[in-house]
């Protein structure tokens, strides 16, 4: 009786182990949580073309952290030239640029030198050499459906307090629009400064959206404020 029970229990244990091996052993490692709007940007320390930089080094400035698939590729080259051309406009808005790809720092150096030599454009912003994909993984820049070895065209706008304020993802085939990036920065900074929202296609100088009232009193008062209202919830004003 005792021996039968032990054998019975042993069989159950073997069955459980087989079921576990079938269902669980081949599962992939857990995917790291992706960055979220309004959450702190994942911290990092990374080798760049301008030395070792940490996320915290950018505290007090806005930061555009962007990735590109690979050095010495045509679309990425057009984007690097375009980013270099808006660099000064961004700096005037207290925005720094930081590039990233899964290439070595020597490749980055050779590429930015090549861009200067062949295209006449100097790239002055740092570029992370993320060979171990540490930063790319933390920010979810690799899209395995597109490529397992390259980062997609991602843009993370991080505010002076280290909070992620906007994320833009473009596929490998499609270069980004620099004017939209500047417009996005202008809109975010305007929202912060004036506690307002910006409508579709907004650009500096356009009317902004007044946040909807939260109470009936506020809705009634709003009509008297001389705002340009289509209805009580939909008001615009000049800044």
């Amino acid at each position: 009786m005792g021996v039968s029970f032990v054998l019975y229990a042993l069989n159950i244990a073997i069955d459980i182990k087989e079921v576990f091996m079938m269902c669980c052993e081949n599962t992939t490692a857990p995917t790291p949580a992706l960055p979220r709007l309004g959450s702190p940007a994942p911290s990092f320390e990374a080798v760049t073309t301008l030395g070792t930089l940490r996320l915290e080094d950018f505290k007090g400035s806005w930061l555009i952290l962007f990735s590109h698939p690979a050095d010495f590729t045509p679309v990425c080259t057009t984007e690097f030239i375009a980013f270099a051309e808006i660099h000064e406009d961004l700096r005037q808005r207290n925005v720094e640029l930081l590039g990233l790809s899964i290439d070595s720092v020597y490749s980055h150096i050779a590429w930015v030198r090549n861009i200067e030599e062949k295209m006449g454009v100097k790239v002055n912003f740092p570029v992370i050499a993320d060979l171990n994909k540490e930063v790319a993984t933390a920010y979810g820049m690799v899209m395995p459906g597109e490529s397992k070895t390259e980062t997609s065209r991602c843009v993370f706008v991080i505010d002076p307090n280290g909070i992620i304020r906007a994320m833009v993802y473009y596929p490998l085939t499609t270069g980004r629009n620099m004017q939209e990036i500047i417009r996005l920065i202008d809109a975010l900074q305007t929202s912060d400064k004036h506690s307002v929202a910006t409508p579709a296609n907004w650009k500096p100088g356009d009317k902004i959206i007044v946040p909807p009232p939260n109470t009936q009193d506020m809705a009634e008062d709003r009509v008297k404020e001389g705002l340009e209202c289509n209805d009580w919830y939909f008001c615009r004003k000049e800044l």
Partner: peptide, 12 residues
């Protein structure tokens, strides 16, 4: 030198 780079270089 930009502030972010000053922080990095001063560390070194």
């Amino acid at each position: 030198v930009p502030l972010y780079r000053v922080r990095s270089v001063i560390r070194e």
